[in-house]
Nucleic acid binder design. Structure first.
Ligand code: FES
Ligand code: FES
Lengths: 138, 138
DNA sequence: TATATATCCTATAAAAAAGATAGGAATTAT
DNA sequence: ATAATTCCTATCTTTTTTATAGGATATATA
């Protein structure tokens, strides 16, 4: 399951997408509008920034904005920045590969292929740009 | 990511599939062969049994065996029995539905459809019978 | 029937991860 | 100068995951 952190992060990114203002948006404003604990959101924003998903302007009247065009941002990117791998097992993760402690040999592992297939399908959907996320009830 | 419990459970199920002996297989034997902590495995087997995935024979010479034909068992079933929902968000889970505390309205949620699509693809792959899991290096 | 081998059950402990908060330094518009 | 804001490190709390303990119950077989 998605962590709360990742879900808050997604909501934050979509909120910033929806408000491409001239002025950046403060963490305080985001926290209030999206009902995210303020200090928790600060941590999330720092992570989003370190992953080049948002940029920040310091000082009074400062705040946050998307670091790139929304067409270049996907839910997968946000999930990876917050929770790590998309894959359900580490040995087939593209960006967070780790060998499986429990499995003797990747070559003969019975479930590796299956989960690789799952990951491929997941990534295909989750890598879509967030611009494709129209509001429902169109 | 898959929990260790789920991974142990999958290994257990595949082990039982590979040993369709006349005699049931003891937890002790499974624990040794698959390198699973014995007492942890007991808990797992109890859960697998309560979900009708394995059956048990008590007493000396007792042990465990699959509760149904392997063609009727999938990795998805094992995952659900151990970790709960396959879906990444609760509001689209088929068997473990919960409304999302953070989202105001499912109808207007921007990410619900996307994650529903992800779940559909995941389930399609993970619901395959374990008999389709041939050993690699065919 | 005694014994050894098992499952079965409840409870607890230990470790790790997730979720949240605290306090203050640094920056900047007004 | 002041107020608003990001930035940083640290800590705390709660929940989940992983694992263990101890014993009750059942059963094959010698
Ligand atoms: S699941 Fe990774 S090697 Fe088996
Ligand atoms: S993710 Fe469940 S309603 Fe938005």
């Amino acid at each position: 399951m998605l962590s709360k952190k990742a879900k808050y992060a997604i909501k934050t990114i979509l909120f910033l997408q929806d408000h491409p203002d001239l002025l950046p948006i403060s963490a305080k404003a985001i926290a209030e509008k999206e009902h995210i604990p303020y200090k928790f959101l600060e941590n999330i924003l720092r992570d989003l920034k370190s992953h080049q998903l948002v940029k920040s302007i310091r000082g009074a009247e400062g705040g946050y904005a998307l670091a790139k065009d929304p067409s270049q941002i996907s839910i997968a990117q946000v999930m990876r920045a917050m929770d790590g791998p998309i894959a359900l097992i580490p040995c087939i993760s593209e960006r967070f590969y780790e060998s499986c402690a429990e499995c003797e040999d990747e070559e003969t592992c019975r479930i590796r292929r299956l989960f690789a297939e799952v990951r491929t399908e997941m990534v295909e959907i989750l890598e879509r740009p967030i611009t494709t996320l129209a509001k429902e009830r169109e």
